[in-house]
Design a protein around this nucleic acid. Structure first.
Lengths: 346, 346
DNA sequence: GGCCGTTGTCGAAGCGCTTCGACGACGTGC
DNA sequence: GCACGTCGTCGAAGCGCTTCGACAACGGCC
C-alpha cells in the first residue's frame, strides 16, 4: 500500500510527515504524556496515511515489553480437542484485545523451552493450558520470574494463579437437579480409575461435590469409576444396574464414555429419561450430539480462556489477583433428565 | 539460575566473561565468520556459564529477522479438530528445529491482522492452515511480500506455495483397492452438497480421482453427496442401496458421517465387509475408532505440517520451491474391506 | 626479505523505539 | 509585574544485537 519502497515505515517517517519530533509521535501512540488535541490529530492522520505499524522488535527492545504472551500446551493428548481449540482461539482473541499476540508453545521442549522464552524476553507472560494435578511444568514456574496463569489446578497452587470450572459445585449442581426431580437413588459415573489414582484435581473435586450434595439431600449415592471404551462402559453400567436396581439418576463425568453409556442403557432396555435420568458434565457439543440430548454442566471454554488472559494482563500491570478463580457451573436442562416416576419400575 | 540480579544476561556480559569483543561472541553464535577453535570454546563456555539467551527483540531489530513464523487458523470451525491440532503441534516442533517460534493467529482480525504482523516485522513468514477453494486470506497474500505456505489448495494457486494430501490419487487408490478385491459396483459417499457447491478443492479432486479410476477399471460407479447428520446419512445410504442393489463397494470421504454410515448399514442388516466393503478417506483415529475398523487413506497431518514448515524455511532462505506439493496417499487395509463374494447375495 | 593474501579479532555504527530531562510558552497568584 | 507552576514538545541517550570495515599477525611467494 503506502509503504516505502524497501523496508518498513518507521516512526521517524511519521514524525517527518506530521512535522513533529519522534518522541511526540511515540507519546501520542502510547498516551503516556499529554499531547494537545491538534498535534494528536495531525500525528494520527500521518499514521493512517503512511500505514504505520511499530516494529515489534524495536518496541520490545526499548520498552522491555514484548506484547506477546505464550500459550503453553501440554504434551499428552488425552484431552478433548474441540474444547482445547476453543480455549486457544479465545485466548488469542482476548489477548488481541489487550494488544498482545500469542506464541504457541508445546511442552515438548521442556523446562528449557520456557526458560529460553523468558531469557530471550520473547514473551511477557504465560498461559498454561490443561494443567494437571502433578504437572511437570509447575515447579519451574516458580523460579521463572514470568507472570503466569494456569488453566486447571495443580496439587499445590499456592503462589500461583489458577482458573477453572468449579468442579465441586458442578458435582453438587447435578445432584441438586436430580434431587429436585425426586430422585433418591443416584450414582456418579466418573473417570477411569487411573485418573483417580493419578490424583487428578478435577475428578476428585467433582466427586466431593457429588458426595457432599448427596449427603445433604439424604440420597442413596455411590461413585463408579468407569473406563472409556465401549466394552468397559457396558460392564460398568450393567454391573451398576444389577447391584442397585432402584437407581433412577446418573451423573456422568466422563465425556468419552457418554455415548457408550447411552448405548449400554439402550441395550439393557432402559429408557432415558423414563427409567433413568442422566446429567452429564461435558462440553456442550458432546451433550447435544447424542440422543436424547443430555442435561449437562458445560465446560465453559470461552469463559475460562477469557478469564485467564484477563488475569494475566492484570498481573502484567502489576496488580494483585486472586490465586484461585473458580467459574460457576451452569446447568443446561435438556431431554435426558426428568421427574422420577411415581411408581418404581420392575 | 545464573542470571543476573535484575534483567537479562546480555551479549556484553558474555563478551566480558570470555575476554573477547561483543562482535566476536556474535560471530561465534551465528557462525558467519571464522573464529578460532580456542576462542569459540571459550565463548561457548561463557554462554553456558551465564545461561545466555539472545534478546529476541534486539536480534530482530538488528538482523531484520524475527525468527518467528505465524500459524494462521481459519475462522470457521467445521474441520476435524484432532487433525488440526496435530498439524499445529507438528508445525511448532518443526519450526523449533529451524530455531523459529510460532505465533498463533486466528483469521478473525482479517486482512488487517496479517498486515499488522508484516508491517511490525513480527513474523518472517506465514503458514496458512486449512485453506479453502475460495479463501478470503489468499488474495491479500499476494501483495503482502511475506513468504507463505498454504495447507490446502485455493482456486488459483499460481505464484503460491501449497501443500496437501493428493486427494486425486487418494480417490484413485481407494478404487484400485476395491477393484483388486473384485468389486464391480461401487459408489463414493462424499461431502455434503454445499461443499461441492462451494467448489471446495479437495472434495472435487477426490471425486475426479474416484471417477477416473473407476472408468479405468471399467467399474459401475456413482457419486453420492451426503449430509453429516445421522438422519441424512441414513436416508442417503438406504436410497443408494435401494437404487443399486448390486453395490458391493463404498468409498466414504466424509469423516463426520463415517459412524452413521456403519450404523445405517447395521440397521439395514448389511454386514461389513461381508456384504459391503468400505474404504474411507479420513483421519486414522476415526478409522480405528469404529467397528469394524475401516480400511482407509489417512490424512497425514504430521507430514503436511512438516512439509509446510520445511518449504517455508527454504523460502526464507531465498530458495525457490515448487508451487504444489502433493503428498502421496497411503492406504491402510483394515477390517472393512474384503474380496467380493463369489455369489451375490439377494 | 619485502609484498601480499588470509585469518581472526575488534570497534563502532546503526536497527526503530521508549523515556528522561530540558525548556520555551503560557497562565496564575500576589 | 515578577516568580512559579503547568502544559506541550523536543533532543538525546540508550535498549541488545548484527554487521561492516579496519587491522594486527602470520605465512607463502617470488
Amino acid at each position: 500500500m503506502t509503504q516505502r519502497r524497501h523496508g518498513l515505515v518507521t516512526i521517524a517517517d511519521v514524525a517527518r510527515h506530521a512535522g513533529v519530533a519522534v518522541s511526540t509521535v511515540s507519546y501520542v501512540l502510547s498516551g503516556k504524556r499529554t499531547i494537545s488535541a491538534t498535534t494528536r490529530q495531525r500525528v494520527l492522520a500521518s499514521v493512517r496515511a503512511l500505514g504505520y505499524h511499530p516494529h515489534a522488535g524495536a518496541r520490545a527492545l526499548a520498552s522491555k515489553r514484548a506484547n506477546v504472551i505464550a500459550l503453553v500446551l501440554p504434551l499428552r493428548s488425552g484431552m478433548h480437542l474441540p474444547v482445547l481449540m476453543r480455549f486457544a482461539t479465545t485466548v488469542v482473541t482476548t489477548a488481541r484485545q489487550y494488544d498482545h499476540d500469542v506464541l504457541l508453545v508445546t511442552a515438548d521442549e521442556g523446562p528449557a523451552g520456557l526458560r529460553r522464552l523468558a531469557a530471550g524476553a520473547m514473551v511477557d507472560g504465560l498461559v498454561l493450558m490443561d494443567v494437571e494435578w502433578q504437572d511437570p511444568r509447575v515447579p519451574m514456574l516458580r523460579d521463572l520470574a514470568l507472570p503466569s496463569v494456569l488453566i486447571g489446578f495443580p496439587a499445590s497452587p499456592a503462589g500461583l494463579t489458577c482458573v477453572d470450572l468449579d468442579f465441586y459445585r458442578a458435582g453438587s449442581v447435578c445432584v441438586d437437579h436430580l434431587a429436585q426431580f425426586g430422585h433418591r437413588h443416584i450414582a456418579l459415573l466418573g473417570a477411569p480409575v487411573v485418573v483417580y489414582e493419578r490424583d487428578t484435581g478435577y475428578a476428585r473435586r467433582t466427586m466431593a461435590g457429588f458426595t457432599d450434595a448427596a449427603a445433604r439431600h439424604g440420597l442413596d449415592a455411590g461413585v463408579e469409576p468407569c473406563e472409556e471404551d465401549a466394552e468397559g462402559v457396558r460392564r460398568t453400567v450393567s454391573a451398576l444396574l444389577a447391584r442397585r436396581p432402584a437407581l433412577t439418576g446418573l451423573v456422568v463425568h466422563n465425556e468419552a464414555a457418554v455415548g457408550h453409556v447411552l448405548d449400554s442403557l439402550r441395550a439393557l432396555d432402559r429408557r432415558v429419561p423414563r427409567d433413568l435420568s442422566i446429567v452429564a458434565i461435558c462440553p456442550d457439543e458432546v451433550a447435544v450430539r447424542v440422543t436424547p440430548a443430555l442435561s449437562s454442566v458445560l465446560i465453559p471454554a470461552e469463559d475460562v480462556g477469557h478469564q485467564a488472559v484477563t488475569l494475566l494482563m492484570r498481573k502484567l500491570e502489576g496488580q494483585r489477583v486472586p490465586e484461585a478463580t473458580l467459574l460457576d457451573p451452569h446447568l443446561a436442562v435438556r431431554a435426558s433428565s426428568a421427574a422420577v416416576r411415581a411408581v418404581a419400575r420392575r
